[in-house]
């Protein structure tokens, strides 16, 4: 928090006293002022971005979850499919985004696809790795109790994957916002991405930065939500931080 404040202060001082033109580097105060003046347009353009982010992410999350289970139950699939996904991760977004827009138009579809493309693989890897992190002894014990594979998955593998899942979620949600903005940058009717592009073309770096501020706020909010969700979903994590009970008969 303090570091962000200091950075803004230094920026403000530099922009004001270095004599640099405000059309090149606007001071934070000007960015804020313009953001306030244009808040309706910003909100109007933020909504499609949020929609694309959430729908695309929900889509990739469901797909990653379904596929992670499939891969967990049929190991050979993993070796067959993973190379494809890894290649999908090496595609440069800059090159892919305009193509996807070209193929699927200016609507919501290409945004969802790009968001899914950048978030799907991290989520899949997180989940698969999470299942693998299940303590071998727990699996052995459950099978000795008479549990089948499905039971072992539900009782042990899925909960074991939760910390990995949330780690993946925190990273992916930030990718998702970037992915949506990139898709809009390549072509959209409305959205923070296209808003930034237009502001840039109109020589309004202050408005570009205002839009950047909005997207940063969006990312932080989503990030905060995942942290909150993790707290709620994993109450034992916080319990572990408390002092262990020391009042048993033998410590």
């Amino acid at each position: 928090m303090i570091s962000v404040g200091l950075l803004l202060l230094a920026w403000e001082l530099y922009a004001t006293y270095s004599g640099i033109k405000s059309t090149t580097l606007p001071a934070p105060s000007r960015v804020f002022e313009q953001a306030m003046l244009n808040r309706e347009a910003l909100v109007d353009n933020a909504i499609p971005t949020i929609r694309a982010t959430l729908i695309g992410f929900a889509f990739s999350l469901s797909a990653a979850f379904a596929l992670s289970m499939l891969v967990d139950f049929f190991r050979p699939l993993r070796r067959a499919l993973f190379p494809v996904f890894i290649v999908s991760q090496t595609l440069p977004l800059v090159a892919i985004a305009p193509l996807v827009v070209l193929w699927f138009g200016f609507g919501l579809m290409p945004k969802i696809m790009l968001v899914a493309l950048v978030t799907f693989f991290p989520m899949l890897v997180a989940l698969v790795q999470g299942y693998e992190a299940t303590e071998a002894e727990i699996g052995q014990m459950l099978r000795a109790m008479g549990a089948g594979r499905w039971r072992v998955f539900l009782l042990a593998r899925l909960p074991s994957a939760l910390p990995y899942f949330f780690a993946g979620l925190r990273i992916s949600i930030t990718y998702a916002v970037v992915g949506a903005i990139f898709a809009e940058y390549a072509g959209a009717a409305k959205g923070l991405g296209i808003y930034m592009l237009n502001a840039k073309n109109n020589f309004r770096p202050d408005l570009v930065l205002a839009a950047v501020g909005v997207s940063a706020a969006l990312t932080l909010t989503l990030f905060g939500l995942t942290v909150l969700l993790q707290r709620l979903a994993m109450p034992w994590e916080r319990a572990a931080g408390q002092h262990p009970a020391g009042t048993g008969p033998w410590r």
Partner: peptide, 30 residues
């Protein structure tokens, strides 16, 4: 397999996400 033995693994293999009561009922639930 899994009919005759109640098995206690080398590490306690308690599930961190289950409360003690629910850990101890695990075998019965299965």
């Amino acid at each position: 397999h899994g009919r005759h033995f109640a098995f206690m693994p080398q590490r306690d293999a308690l599930m961190p996400w289950r409360r003690i009561l629910d850990n101890t009922t695990l075998g019965l639930e299965v």
